[in-house]
């Protein structure tokens, strides 16, 4: 055999071997679009409406539902406890007297999220549908987002925790930041967030989630027609959590 012919044959064999490794049939798809999941409808913009007039004093159903759905850590130590949604007492002067009101606080899913702007690794980012979400796979635990968030809605996992109530869903390990993600995993599958579902099951339905870009959506209608407020609107973060009766 000529040397040229030998080299040609050798190169051909090597190329065939290299291609063979990657040309194996991996998946037989009856519909390839089902592989990574459905493409979510474009142009959605999730928002939440909290009706404080319906919210019951001292009720913690949504808080508990969030904890058990998202495996949010609770250590019993207020310095390191994590709350995706929490209740705070807000005092305000009305005339001569002081009124106290319980207000639900959660991540406001700002349209201009300061947490996403400061994140050095793009672990925190705003999704195409407006949800501000932490990708814990990328988070390096620098806690810039906690400093940037004007609503103190961000928490850090100072420790690992043992509780794992919802084993179908991930928990967070030590060293990453987290906050409410509006139950993105449920919204993507067409379900309501855990807090909304729990509040509706209880009766008052003080919480509602909807597409603000859809004019027919009850939440979008309420935001457009009723008297709603957002928190710290002067900061220009343009939150998507609206409060009625604040």
């Amino acid at each position: 055999m000529e040397r040229r012919e030998f080299l040609k044959a050798a190169a051909g064999t090597a190329a065939a071997a290299a291609c063979g490794v990657y040309a194996l049939r991996v998946l037989t798809a009856k519909g390839m679009e089902g592989l990574g999941g459905e493409e979510p409808p474009a142009g959605r913009r999730w928002g939440m409406l909290v009706d404080l007039a319906k919210c019951r004093e001292g009720c913690t159903v949504c808080l508990d539902a969030c904890r058990s759905e998202n495996n949010v850590a609770f250590f019993g130590d207020p310095r390191i406890d994590i709350h995706w949604i929490r209740k705070v007492a807000v005092r305000k002067q009305v005339g001569g007297r002081t009124e106290e009101k319980e207000v639900l606080l959660l991540c406001n899913h700002c349209d201009e999220p300061p947490c996403a702007q400061v994140c050095p690794v793009q672990a925190t980012y705003k999704r195409h549908d407006g949800i501000v979400i932490v990708d814990q796979h990328r988070c390096i635990g620098c806690r810039y987002c906690m400093i940037a968030c004007p609503y103190s809605a961000r928490y850090f996992n100072f420790r690992d925790h043992e509780d794992w109530p919802n084993r179908e869903h991930a928990r967070r390990s030590h060293g990453v930041a987290e906050s409410c993600n509006l139950c993105a995993h449920r919204l993507d599958r067409g379900r309501k967030p855990a807090c909304v579902e729990a509040c509706e099951a209880l009766g008052p339905a003080a919480l509602a989630v909807g597409d603000l870009n859809d004019p027919g959506d009850p939440v979008a209608k309420a935001v457009a027609t009723r008297s709603v407020k957002r928190l710290k609107e002067d900061l220009g973060t343009r939150p998507k959590v609206y409060y009625e009766g604040l």
Binding site: L35, G36, G37, E38, R127, I133, D135, H137, H185, R189
Partner: peptide, 11 residues
């Protein structure tokens, strides 16, 4: 796909 783009399938 799931975390960044919200495309969640059965897998």
């Amino acid at each position: 796909e799931a975390v960044r783009y919200g495309r969640r399938g059965v897998l």
